[in-house]
């Protein structure tokens, strides 16, 4: 097993880098879209709420593999030929945005209404309230479920091997078919995924401890 790791560490490292690039960009982009959706879900306008709800239902209710195939094979039908890597990032972004919107929505609901009323009283603009009061606190409040989502996306990124993005999973498939040692190769892949996920969990626990201060009192 260690031979596999030693013999192939440059390709494995490259695969892992791609896995990280894809999942982290999807998480970051998904955060922007997810936060926007969360505000749309709590909008004053019924149409906006309804549209955001429909989006969320679709992206939460169908398998991510299917979404990936849909984006990758369906877009060319409309004349949009996108290479596998952007298609992968796009799908994971659209998917995680739906899950993150729900996480953020619960965070928004937990911010004491009094703060927002007070901010409105002192004449803060609608957008300023969101940017300076709601969003920073929502991140602190939702850190644990957000970490779960990051780990989920990192694991789901193994699916993009199906549309031939050479990330960690596909790299392992290639090594396995070359060395005829599937068990050892996939164990190495499993350990690499596990290492990254444990690291992420630790970082999140650290952040959680250090961001406790200044949290909204009920």
């Amino acid at each position: 097993m260690f031979e596999i790791l030693i013999d192939n560490y440059p390709v494995l490292l490259r695969g892992l880098t791609f896995t990280l690039i894809v999942s982290l960009s999807a998480i970051a982009l998904g955060m922007l879209l997810g936060m926007t959706l969360a505000f749309a879900l709590t909008s004053r306008f019924a149409t906006v709420r309804w549209l955001a709800g429909g989006y969320r239902s679709f992206w939460r209710g169908t398998p991510i593999l299917l979404q990936l195939l849909l984006v990758y094979y369906l877009l060319p039908e409309f004349g949009l030929n996108i290479p596998p890597l952007p298609a992968a990032i796009l799908t994971l972004t659209l998917n995680t945005a739906a899950f993150q919107s729900e996480i953020f929505r619960s965070g928004i609901a937990h911010i004491p209404q009094g703060q927002i009323e007070a901010a409105r009283m002192v004449g803060m603009h609608h957008w300023d309230i969101r940017r300076r009061i709601v969003v920073p606190q929502v991140f602190r409040l939702t850190l644990p479920p957000l970490t779960n989502e990051v780990i989920t996306i990192l694991k789901n990124s193994s699916l993009i091997s199906v549309i031939s993005v050479t990330e960690l999973m596909r790299t392992s498939e290639q090594i396995a078919s070359r060395t005829f040692q599937p068990l050892e190769t996939y164990l190495v892949a499993a350990l690499l995924y596990l290492a990254v996920n444990l690291l992420l969990a630790r970082i999140s626990a650290y952040l959680e401890r250090h961001m406790k201060g200044g949290l909204a009192a009920e």
Partner: peptide, 21 residues
């Protein structure tokens, strides 16, 4: 911890392709 940290796809590959060895 293992279940939560390893993608299902990897587990399936381990079972299906790695199992025979």
């Amino acid at each position: 911890e293992l279940c939560r940290g390893i993608p299902l796809l990897v587990i399936l590959f381990l079972l299906y392709y790695g199992g025979p060895s």
